[in-house]
């Protein structure tokens, strides 16, 4: 069936099966492969996108359900090619990623979190992070990066 989904401000129309997961639509239909898939059962958080501004698992929604909603992915964060936004820059500065696979989902979760809570405590950051699994970093540098971004007024 035809579906029209707006991702990062651009409307994409495709003919898809109703069962196509939003994560697969984003990655393989429109080619935005920054959103990663780690479990397809809603636990790891790698596929976190913003759904009308709120963080959600792209693996737990069907693409057909996204029609009429505003979907944002990691590719929307940097305002210009080859640049980083303040949160991304804080991640690099703090060495907040190793393999980088979980990173896009974490950036999207933290983007929404900082929008609501621009001056969080470490404990608040850790709570907000707890729905995203990272296997490489032990989270400490991610926490540092979010606090740094907040301090810089990201």
């Amino acid at each position: 069936m035809k579906v029209r989904v707006t991702v990062n401000g651009v409307a994409h129309e495709r003919d898809v099966e109703p069962r196509l997961l939003l994560s697969d639509f984003i990655r393989h239909e429109i080619g935005l492969t920054g959103t990663h898939v780690g479990c397809e059962h809603g636990v790891c958080g790698a596929c976190t996108i913003l759904w009308d501004g709120a963080p959600a698992r792209a693996c737990l929604a069907f693409a057909v359900q996204a029609e009429g909603h505003d979907i944002r992915t990691v590719e929307s964060l940097a305002q210009a090619p080859a640049r980083l936004n303040a949160l991304q820059q804080a991640f690099q500065d703090s060495h907040a990623l190793q393999c980088g696979y979980c990173t896009p989902g974490i950036l999207m979760t933290m983007t929404a979190f900082l929008a609501e809570n621009p001056k969080p405590t470490e404990d608040e950051v850790r709570h907000a992070l707890s729905g995203n699994l990272c296997r490489c970093t032990g989270y400490q540098h991610i926490v540092d990066a979010v606090l740094l971004a907040a301090e810089r007024g990201a």
Binding site: R27, E75, A78, F91, Q92, G100, L107
Partner: peptide, 21 residues
């Protein structure tokens, strides 16, 4: 020093195996 590999990963531009189309 901060890492050379980070900007592409942070922008979602890095190539992982499932990204190969």
């Amino acid at each position: 020093l901060t890492r050379n590999e980070d900007p592409r990963l942070l922008r979602g531009e890095a190539l992982f195996v499932d990204d190969v189309e």
